[in-house]
Simulated scan of single mutants.
Amino acid sequence: MISPITLDALRTLDAIERRHSFAAAAEELCRVPSAISYTINKLEEDLGVALFDRSRRKAELTAIGRLVLEQGRQILKATEELTAQARRAADGWEVELRICVDSILNCDPVYDLIEAFHRIQPKTEIRLSEEVLGGSWDALNDGRCDLVIGADGASPVQGFALHSLGEVIFEFAVTVGHPLTELPMPLPASVIHDYPTVIVADSSRHLPVRSSGLLDGRSRIIVPTIEHKIAAQCRGLGVGYLPRHRITRELAEGRLALLTLVTPRPPEQIYVAWQRNNAGKGLKWFIEQLKKMRFDADGGGLTQAQKP
């Protein structure tokens, strides 16, 4: 029996769900809307089931449609992995290299590496993503990326190859003029409890989520990235620790002030990590370059490591 569920139909279904409309899916897939409608109608007809509930103003997936989509995405992922493996086997260079940058870093040093890489291998597509806390390890463990730059803390699972980039230094920061700035230093933890703590949500999908730098205040404001955390603290919405290298401009412009606590937060080791069995030439090139570098805790860049 030949299944009516084709890869093209699954890609169409996936695009509709992600873009929230047939028209937007058509734009993404470079097709006319009528072609998108025909593909879905034909699939429903061949399966003998309704994938979308059209009784409402906006078509929504039925329970069966959701099932086909979720299982179909696994098929699409497996197909993409098989295609990539076949092409990698041909010449060793990846068609696509997926690099995850932890939210604790900014991407400027990574852009420099990508620019240098494309001078020698312009045909490899680089796909950047951002994760938070354990989300970097989760992305590597789940196969969503080939290389992680800036993963902090110890890996929650075994089997990754690691290279330490150095330490990130954290500073307790508040908006200029905050009531805490009027108190004598160093501050005890008890006085911080009167103010909301801004924390970054862990982006892990499968590995256990973890928290970083929690101050156990009475209320919390949860944001998706370090960038959002900086913005929230600049506006005085809350307090908390921030990476020193990410707030140099905010300090220079007088938008943030640093405070000293009785118990400061220790520096955090950050790593480059990758799957040991990945033999791609592009991945190897990035690893070789990163092994020559150290993280600058003050400026946030990657500098040449000092030879012993």
Rank of each mutant, 00 (worst) to 15 (best):
G153C: 07
K42I: 05
S3E: 05
A63E: 07
G254F: 05
D216N: 14
V110E: 04
S203P: 11
A231I: 13
T79S: 15
G153A: 01
S103H: 02
F22N: 01
G65Q: 00
T260M: 13
T248G: 04
I99Q: 02
K284S: 15
N106Q: 09
V110I: 08
R66Q: 10
L258K: 07
D146Q: 11
V132N: 11
I75C: 06
W274H: 07
P188S: 06
K42G: 03
E81Q: 08
A84D: 10
A189P: 05
R127L: 12
T225K: 11
D108V: 14
S219R: 10
L242I: 12
V157S: 11
A63P: 11
A173K: 13
E70G: 06
L242E: 01
E27H: 14
A116K: 14
P267I: 11
E45N: 15
H193A: 14
L215E: 00
D202S: 04
A305Y: 03
G217T: 10
F286H: 00
E171R: 12
V148Y: 02
I149S: 04
C100L: 06
I221N: 02
L162A: 14
L162S: 07
A26C: 07
I287S: 03
R66K: 09
E28T: 13
D53E: 14
K284M: 08
L113P: 01
L256R: 04
Q289Y: 02
E131I: 07
T181P: 04
V272A: 03
L256G: 02
L7M: 12
P122V: 08
A189Q: 13
C234N: 12
R235N: 14
S155R: 09
A279D: 07
R119H: 13
R88C: 07
V132D: 02
C234S: 13
Q158M: 08
R19T: 12
I230W: 04
A15Y: 06
Q85H: 11
I99H: 04
L214T: 12
G134Q: 03
A305R: 12
A84N: 14
P264Y: 06
L51Q: 00
E17C: 10
A139E: 04
I199N: 09
T6F: 02
M185L: 13
V32T: 10
K292W: 09
F172H: 00
P224W: 03
A151G: 14
K281E: 07
G240D: 13
G65C: 00
G48W: 09
G213R: 02
Y38D: 12
P33M: 05
G65M: 00
K58I: 15
A252G: 12
S136H: 05
R220S: 15
P267S: 15
I64N: 08
G92M: 09
Q121M: 15
F22V: 06
E80P: 06
